[in-house]
């Protein structure tokens, strides 16, 4: 299968107080057609910035894409002119945002907001657009679609609004849908409905999805492959089964450890101590070193590269380095990293 999206060494910098700080630091990953890729990480790790870079919607200033390439169907989006990008946005790549409550324009009707994207990218009359919009509303499971078409966003609940956002996102049958924490702001039952909807739609349309979340449960449910990000870097990537069954990076291990499990009775959930470092504050060495249970002297000396575990599974950790890793690991007497907190 071909790659819809190929990101190579993407770097994004933001300027604050006159100083430029890299918030995304050389990440590379790809998404195949029809695949759902989960991007996981704590808030502030650069997930959303990465997704906005693909759309070329980084607010500039203060932000800018300072390096790398983003290939979409083999063409580098970073070389595109703004006019060419506008043809891609909403049409070939579309995006759903975290906050359904504020992502719709309060002064326009729902219909107008779905029509907008259709009229931008398709040669359509208003009547055709209206027909297609109502169709889309029905597709995303909105009852009384004709009535909702003429409603204003404030008349809709959060879940309904996110359905509308999905309708807008899928209206032009994009090849890639970027969903930036689409369910975070919703309550659990609505969350499940929206995820069901997205899964169903994906099967129907075969759209590739980049699913950004901090919720590993959602990842397990939705994704084929997972990229784990930490402080602007990819620390581990694998297919979803491998990641859940055999996590390699201590951070991933920690994340999984902090998930509650049905089959175990525990008093306290594990949590990773400390906080994500402020971008630019780690000068050398591994960014996770400060919070890592397995930190070694070398970790604070040099930034680890991605080590290949097996095909399609990489981890950015010195533990897997033939020179520095094994030796010290052997001392420890450990061969695999156990799931903490269990």
């Amino acid at each position: 299968m071909t790659n819809v999206l190929d990101i190579k060494d993407l770097e994004v910098s933001f300027k604050s107080d006159g100083k430029e700080v890299k918030v995304v630091n050389g990440i590379s990953f790809s998404i195949k057609a029809g695949e759902t890729l989960g991007v996981v990480g704590e808030s502030g790790c650069g997930k959303s910035v990465t997704s906005l870079s693909i759309m070329r919607l980084i607010p500039s200033p203060p932000g800018r894409i300072s390096g790398g390439q983003i290939y979409f169907n083999g063409e580098n989006l970073l070389d595109k002119k703004e006019r060419e990008m506008r043809k891609i946005r909403g049409n070939d790549i579309s995006m759903i945002f975290q906050e359904p409550m504020t992502s719709l324009n309060p002064v326009f009707t729902i219909g107008k907001q779905i029509n907008e994207v259709l009229l931008l990218h398709y040669k359509m009359t208003h009547a055709e657009a209206r027909k297609k919009s109502i169709e889309m509303l029905k597709l995303v499971g909105i009852p009384r679609a004709e009535q909702i078409y003429d409603s204003h966003p404030y008349q809709l609940s959060g879940g309904m609004r996110q359905r509308v956002m999905i309708a807008i996102g899928l209206a032009c049958e994009p090849q890639l849908l970027i969903a930036d924490e689409p369910t975070t702001a919703l309550d659990v039952t609505i969350q499940a409905q929206i995820l069901d909807l997205m899964r169903g739609l994906k099967e129907k349309t075969n759209t590739a999805i980049m699913f950004i979340t901090h919720d590993l449960g959602v990842v397990a449910e939705m994704c084929d492959r997972v990229v784990v990000m930490y402080s602007g870097e990819i620390v581990e990537q694998a297919d979803v089964d491998t990641l859940f069954n055999d996590p390699k990076h201590p951070y991933t291990v920690g994340l999984l450890g902090s998930l509650p499990k049905v089959d175990e009775k525990i008093d306290r959930l594990y949590s990773i101590s400390g906080q994500v470092p402020v971008p630019g504050s780690v000068e050398k060495g591994c960014r996770f070193a400060g919070r890592c249970d397995h930190v070694m002297p070398h970790c604070t000396q040099e930034d680890p590269p991605l080590f290949k575990m097996k095909d399609g599974h990489d981890a950015r950790c010195w533990l897997y380095d033939p020179v520095h890793g094994r030796k010290e690991e052997a001392k420890d007497g450990q061969t695999t990293l156990g799931r903490e907190g269990s």
């Binding site: 919607l57 990008m85 891609i88 946005r89 579309s94 945002f97 907008e116 994207v117 931008l120």
Partner: peptide, 13 residues
């Protein structure tokens, strides 16, 4: 506001 970002993400001028 978020909805301005939405409009841009639609490919609006």
């Amino acid at each position: 506001e978020d909805y301005v970002r939405t409009a841009r993400a639609k490919g609006q001028k």
